[in-house]
């Protein structure tokens, strides 16, 4: 599904990723954990194709295709979804209008037919109910005045509707209390499927109690320094980054 090879990325001329390599096969959930400044957010932004994140070396392959040079909307249309750590507030755009625009834009970019209004509403209402996103929330301006939990639920709703092949969750647990975290995790788990992969990026092990990964990778100073199964996350929780990374180095 996703093959990252020797990825070097600079932001504003400063090297952040320094030879990151990672492979996420179809249907698997991989977690990337790392201390502050390791390059976690840079990894997610680079995979989503954000401007200003310059790939100076290496490649990103998705479903066998080199996507390193593609722009964000092209990657989204191919099935890459980034759930934002801090979803943006966009005044003047209703959530429902945004969802419809996104779904139809992706369909157009893929050369597929757009959804008509009735099918769209059916789809949205079904998805919204599962995530306890109210009709009122859908009518509100996108993320404006939403609580932290509402914003993250809205992200997961978008994921459910856009049905990506690869979902990247960037510090999805930040700013969530335990109830909101459980609700979000349930939403994610419901979307786990043999043809869908997840990359869960997080600082803390807590989220991985609820979204149980197949593999855990530790990112430090722009490289994966250690990989293992879910017990690696528990080990990190017990011993701390310094001890575990120290072992690796």
């Amino acid at each position: 599904m996703l093959e990252i090879e020797n990825l070097h990325v600079s932001v504003a001329g400063k090297p952040i990723l320094k030879g990151l390599s990672l492979s996420v096969p179809e249907g698997e959930v991989h977690a990337i954990m790392g201390p502050n400044g390791a390059g976690k957010s840079t990894t997610s932004y680079t995979l989503a194709g954000r401007e200003g994140y310059s790939v100076t070396n290496g490649t990103i392959r998705f479903k066998g295709e080199d996507i390193t040079g593609l722009n964000p909307e092209e990657r989204a249309a191919r099935g890459i979804f980034l759930a934002f750590q801090y979803p943006l507030e966009i005044p003047g755009v209703s959530t429902i209008n945004f969802l419809r625009t996104a779904i139809n834009s992706q369909a157009r970019l893929r050369g597929e037919a757009e959804l008509d209004a009735v099918d769209f509403l059916k789809l949205v209402r079904g998805g919204a109910q599962k995530l306890k996103v109210s009709e009122e929330m859908l009518r509100r301006q996108l993320n404006v005045g939403f609580s932290g939990g509402e914003k993250k639920r809205n992200e997961i709703l978008q994921m459910a509707l856009l049905r990506p092949a690869l979902a990247i969750l960037d510090e999805t647990d930040s700013g969530l209390d335990i109830d909101a975290l459980k609700l979000v995790a349930e939403g994610v788990n419901a979307l786990r499927a043999p043809d869908r992969s997840f990359l869960v990026i997080t600082h803390y092990q807590r989220l991985l109690d609820y979204i149980v990964p197949d593999y855990v990778h530790i990112l430090a100073d722009g490289q994966i320094v250690k990989s293992g199964d879910k017990t690696l996350a528990l080990q990190l929780e017990e011993q701390g980054y310094d001890a575990v990374i120290g072992q690796a180095a």
Binding site: E51, E73, F84, F98, A102, Q106
Partner: peptide
């Protein structure tokens, strides 16, 4: 807002359309 623009594009909304959406809003 470059952040808002990236957010929309990351959802598959093409750059020109994302710009139009933000200006319209």
């Amino acid at each position: 807002d470059a952040n808002a623009l990236f957010y929309l594009r990351a959802r598959g909304i093409a750059e020109a359309e994302a710009r139009a959406l933000l200006i319209a809003a």
